[in-house]
Write a protein that binds this DNA or RNA. Structure first.
Lengths: 156, 156
DNA sequence: ATGTTATTGATAATGGATATCAATAACATC
DNA sequence: GATGTTATTGATATCCATTATCAATAACAT
């Protein structure tokens, strides 16, 4: 399952014989219009004004499909709900990772030393794939800590 | 909050004025006796035969305390429940990461290229800390994929 | 031995996510 | 453009991991 550019998602849908429905279009639109990491409910709330009969169930299902197709990434920042972002979105570094405040869950995207990181990840993927026979499809790299605001509060 | 060796956990408890109770001892024992990544319920089930009046609530609370003290790591393998492992356990590489099958959730621990990885992580921690003012306390590195068995099934 | 208070555990409640299933709407075909 | 097939939707009920509540209990300092 290889990555699909969000700009080509309609084509990918057709190839998989998936129908191009209004809810699906609006959900991709919402994800493309923000740099936030939205939860399913937040996606629902942003689609609702434009399409009031959207159902939360549909949002969950659609996000699942998009993740499985490699158009969307599912993220976990430890706040008990999954969050989603387009894999490819204009104005965002194509490859990035996340720095998360474990207290307030604020998220910073970073791409420092990404060349070096990608090189190491590729090397590891190859080694692990050979050693354990896994077909590797993705990775998670994340730093956890306290943001400046929460650090100050912790001292109080 | 710095890491605490599991062998010294009783001392760490005393320093924090936390009481050394039977449930807490048994929970640490269970984690020390396995290389599995247990869920809260699995910990509960393994303590129960030795101490039938253990409550699931206590297990959740204790695991939380242990995580906050740096004695235990909370892991997320995408199967909708947190899993736990001792940070330091005899017979396990002290620093390692996980390769997870996204289908059956099987987990392989690896420590390949760990020197290189640790060096990069340290460098990133320093850079991110300076750039964004975070006090960095931890990181997640994880590879996702399909294990040999699930790969075969997927082809069927 | 005793008092203080951290800890426990039964119970109920929360909340994100999923299963069910009849109604609807894409879209291939004519 | 009309029509039939079938993927998709969404209201509803449900699941299940985790957390809140609070009276009873047990660590441990004195």
């Amino acid at each position: 399952m290889k990555q699909v550019r969000s700009s080509e998602w309609t084509g990918a849908f057709k190839q998989h014989r998936l129908r191009l429905t209004k809810p699906r279009q609006l959900i991709v639109d919402v994800l493309g219009a923000t740099s936030d990491h939205l939860s399913a409910e937040e996606v629902y709330l942003r689609v609702h004004p434009k399409y009031a009969r959207i159902g939360l169930t549909t949002v969950y299902r659609t996000l699942d499909v998009l993740v499985r197709m490699g158009i969307v990434s599912r993220l976990d920042f430890g706040d008990a709900r999954s969050r989603y972002e387009l894999v490819e979105r204009s104005g965002k570094p194509s490859h990035h990772h996340h720095l998360v405040c474990s207290s307030c869950k604020r998220v910073v995207e970073y791409d420092d030393f990404m060349d070096e990181e990608v090189k190491l990840i590729k090397k590891l993927e190859k080694a692990l794939s050979r050693k354990h026979g896994f077909g590797i499809t993705g990775h998670v790299v994340q730093f956890l800590g306290l943001c400046p605001a929460c650090k100050t509060l912790a001292r109080a």
